[in-house]
Design a binder for these strands. Structure first.
Lengths: 149, 149
DNA sequence: CAGTTGTCTTGATCAGTTCAAGATACCCGC
DNA sequence: GCGGGTATCTTGAACTGATCAAGACAACTG
């Protein structure tokens, strides 16, 4: 994996450029890192990027992730108790399943009964723009293994 | 407001004691502070407590909130981009409406269509224990007032 | 190929939260 | 009512995750 062939890289570059951003080695590396681990912390992306671009700084990664987030290229989620996570799946209104044991995160395409969660029973006059659903539970590994502090 | 009469205080004390915790002035003050502002940060609770008990330390407030949270007396929520908020409404599986403009938080009793959100379409083998829904939008005030950075 | 502008590096700073050790106060039993 | 045991509070420090600022550098435009 970690496809570094020209084709894949070009695809990434097109995405970046069409978002109105300049294409740099660091930015390509960040996108590839997020392909490899779809729910990564900034720190983790940093480690992955640095593997291929040793001179890269943590602040650069934060800058890239911030730019991508406001450009809509990546989505930032912040499960309670965890550092911010970044993912490339964007614009498809999916939700997350978080393991309370190990912190593992999985995507959930949607909720049964379609998307009723987009409408609260009483919006209190709010203009509701988005609904975010987080499911908390134990992943298969943590169900098997008793407590791993 | 800020009822300090014996009756109300006694009710709070009973709640604390029945959770297996000792009753102290700081703990009573924290509960009352959460009654006055139902979605408060630790810092905000600290300010409210200190108004009545000048010698109280911030760490004491953190300690009380942590103890209450693990005893199930208060619930801790962490909307993305905000500090942790604490609330007394607990055990009724309600959700939250957060203003992206000013950060105001309101409770939402439940979602239309009952509680379908408790069942993801594909649990991936997880033992799902809870579902947390956060609605993002603009509150009436922020809809009226254009951008207040 | 040079200019302009956006991006990266370096270094410092911040908010929010947690940890540790000792003094203190609550609650139980007598 | 009062002392002992233990949870709680105070003081002080430290830690993580994230952000800001200034200058060096590199990507795209013409």
């Amino acid at each position: 994996m970690t496809s570094t062939d020209a084709t894949a890289t070009d695809t990434l570059a097109v995405g970046i450029r069409s978002a109105g951003l300049k294409v740099t080695a660091q930015r390509l590396a960040v996108l590839q890192a997020l392909d490899d681990s779809p729910h990564a912390t900034a720190e983790r992306v940093f480690a992955a990027v640095r593997a291929g671009l040793p001179g890269t700084s943590l602040q650069a990664v934060y800058g890239v992730l911030t730019a991508f987030t406001s450009a809509g290229l990546v989505r930032r989620i912040e499960p309670a108790g965890s550092a911010a996570l970044f993912e490339r799946r964007v614009g498809d209104n999916h939700h997350h399943l978080v393991c309370t044991g190990c912190g593992a995160v999985h995507d959930v395409d949607c909720v049964v009964g379609e998307a009723p969660c987009l409408t609260p029973s009483d919006a209190r006059g709010f203009a509701v723009a988005a609904a975010e659903v987080t499911f908390w539970g134990l992943c298969p590994s943590c169900r098997a293994a008793p407590a791993t502090p």
